[in-house]
Design a protein around this nucleic acid. Structure first.
Lengths: 135, 135
DNA sequence: AATTAGTTTATAATAGTTCTAAAGTGAAAA
DNA sequence: TTTTCACTTTAGAACTATTATAAACTAATT
């Protein structure tokens, strides 16, 4: 994914490609593998890997904008911090609490033989599988 | 589950049965069905349903003590609040985001045909299935 | 009844996140 | 281009959920 694609990605989402958004988007999306992060970890990584400065509020604004645009998904992990994932396809997670690390599980790695049906009047939006790991 | 059982439950967990703990335990555990709550919702319910007063810190202390004793489990839900569950058996959840409501799914309602194996050197501690609902 | 270790309480402190409003900036219009 | 202006960034304040503190209280043992 090259810089021009980042600009397209932002513009097509109605996000003005500011210096900060472009840098954060490049950092997040110009990768081979999916990337899991918290705002805190992203803040530290940006400080280390880039020369720009980002207000913490800008990082929050930006990842919220990216999430709203469908470029990031949110993963539920025990603890207070919110985790984000650059993998926005339907998939699942391993969670290694030893080092607070998330690992993606492709959707086709999980097949159900039996699943309950949704309660009265409700429909199933999606099914998330979370596999906790130990040593 | 009668009062005498509550006292036994507390004592056998090394928890001195104080007035507050007994009341909260009765409120939580003298039920037919499992009960899901946040500290905030529990605080409001206790204020409404009992005549005693509980400091918020006491509610936190108490549910942490109950959780440490294995009488409550914690459920991960998107959002900042921590949800607790009086169902401590291995099971799963529906989540209805319309009204922030959790619904239990018995373990035997979910059967896997395929599950990934744990990464290098890790073992699977447990598998949690979370089914998001919509209308 | 006296002692004491565990508990409750109000309040302060903390962590993560969101809000605010002033200053800055992309991009459309002149 | 320059001007304009809506959108964005920023620092710091505010907020929310939770945890820590330390003094007052209490269950249970002596």
């Amino acid at each position: 994914m090259k810089k021009i694609d980042i600009l397209k990605k932002l513009r097509s989402s109605g996000l003005r490609p500011t210096k900060q958004r472009v840098e954060i988007a490049k950092f997040l999306f110009e990768r081979e593998k999916t990337f899991h992060f918290t705002v805190e970890s992203l803040d530290k990584l940006l400080a280390k890997k880039t020369t720009s400065k980002f207000a913490l509020a800008t990082i929050y604004n930006t990842i919220h904008a990216f999430k709203a645009a469908g470029h990031l998904s949110e993963v539920e992990v025990k603890g207070k911090k919110t985790y984000f994932d650059t993998n926005i396809s339907n998939h699942h997670h391993f969670y290694d609490s030893e080092n607070s690390e998330l690992i993606d599980i492709e959707a086709n790695e999980v097949v159900f033989q039996k699943l309950p049906k949704a309660p009265n009047g409700k429909k199933i939006k999606n099914v998330e599988v979370f596999i906790n790991l130990k040593n």
